[in-house]
Design a protein around this nucleic acid. Structure first.
Lengths: 215, 215
DNA sequence: CAGCCGACTGAACAGGCGTTTAGGGTACTG
DNA sequence: CAGTACCCTAAACGCCTGTTCAGTCGGCTG
């Protein structure tokens, strides 16, 4: 009864099957709404085995955090060293292979998690490096506060992942699938290329307002 | 024992106190992690009274959804009719009065909620109207897909709220307080004014790549 | 072969959950 | 003054939770 190929990775260790099931269920419903019994059932084991391998539900979560973070950091170098398009196309090529881990990543960043916080910080740092190099090379704008701007760009990149349900609805797609990402690509580049405002009036008005409030 | 002024709005109806407590606790910890007993304790009533007034925990959530949505829609007209700065300054003036409702709004959009979905759709629609009028007036760029661009701008505006914990950490503030919002304001305007890229190369490259993949 | 260790399970535990029930108290109403 | 409607609670219900315990099985080691 343990050879049923529910997903692509069947016939693994029971421990690995538990981890896979936990990542999927935690990612779908969140930590609090997912029970140890549901994870055990999906993995085809008893609830007691989950505790035997991971100590507790919280320990299982930490193990999942580290596993997903490790997998994402492995692809991180590829994502930043070569072009972003290649990485995205690899993601788009495999439809739902990464989906579970992306869902889990979203939960990790939204719900409190030390690993998720570290991952977020790393994303902002990487974005800052990208902006700094881009500005030096001349094809990216120079900003007064590169760190906060990196935070904003990272937020814009992360937001569709965290709000995949809403984005999917807005784009008439089921969640953040390949088609949805394709629909987002060009408008994102347009917005980041042309900017929203045609002139510096709004920026200057805000600057003036803030200086008048806080001199 | 019901006269203890825990927050600013004491001595209300028990039903209103329950709602207020629920909005606060749901906003802080989320729906699944908040128990009816905790809400009842915070409101100074018995758990049974919660069910008596709202039917069930789910019914209480729906009532909170409608209440918060109503309060936000009341200020929506003011936020869009007059300038955005005035609304933001009103928010900043009252430190934590809106905080609980903003936390709740964040949960409403993240966790599945019909009212939250409707609120999100309304936000995108309003943003689209803003972009359309801005483009007609000439102080905003014209985009090939205004609807998707509005979605992106709405995401950028919403992201700090949903990730207030991460944004607070990145800006060395405790959550999304007034100081954090002030630190975000100018970089946001800079990014939306100058754009990220100095030239159309990245946009053209993406456009070419997508046309080659999907002719 | 004996011993042992780790994987694994069925059953049970205590506790928290949302909800129900029965009823007390109070205030308006005929 | 009796009736009634509503606010409100203490106690309990059944269920589900994470976790524990005792014990079985199988393979490896002395």
């Amino acid at each position: 009864m343990c050879s049923a190929p529910l997903d692509g990775s069947a016939d693994l260790t029971a421990k690995a099957r538990i981890r896979t099931a936990a990542i999927q269920l935690f990612g779908q419903a969140g930590y609090a709404r997912t029970s140890v019994r549901a994870i055990a059932a999906q993995a085809g084991v008893s609830p007691a085995l989950v505790v035997h391998h991971f100590g507790s539900k919280e320990g299982l979560k930490r193990a999942c955090d580290q596993y997903v973070a490790g997998e994402l950091l492995d692809t991180e170098a590829a994502a930043y060293d070569q072009d972003l398009l290649g990485t995205m196309q690899r993601w788009l090529a495999e439809p739902a292979a990464f989906a579970a881990e992306f869902d889990y990543l979203s939960r990790m960043i939204l719900e409190g998690s030390a690993t998720g916080d570290a991952l977020f910080d790393r994303l902002v740092e990487r974005t800052e490096a990208l902006l700094t190099h881009g500005a030096q090379a001349g094809h990216m704008s120079r900003f007064s506060d590169v760190r906060t701007t990196s935070l904003l760009v990272a937020l814009l990149g992360l937001a569709p992942l965290l709000l995949s349900r809403q984005v999917g609805r807005a784009l008439d797609e089921s969640g953040l699938n390949a088609a949805a990402l394709q629909k987002l690509a060009l408008p994102t580049l347009e917005l980041l290329t042309y900017g929203l405002y045609t002139g510096p009036e709004a920026l200057e008005a805000t600057r003036a307002a803030m200086e008048s409030v806080e001199p």
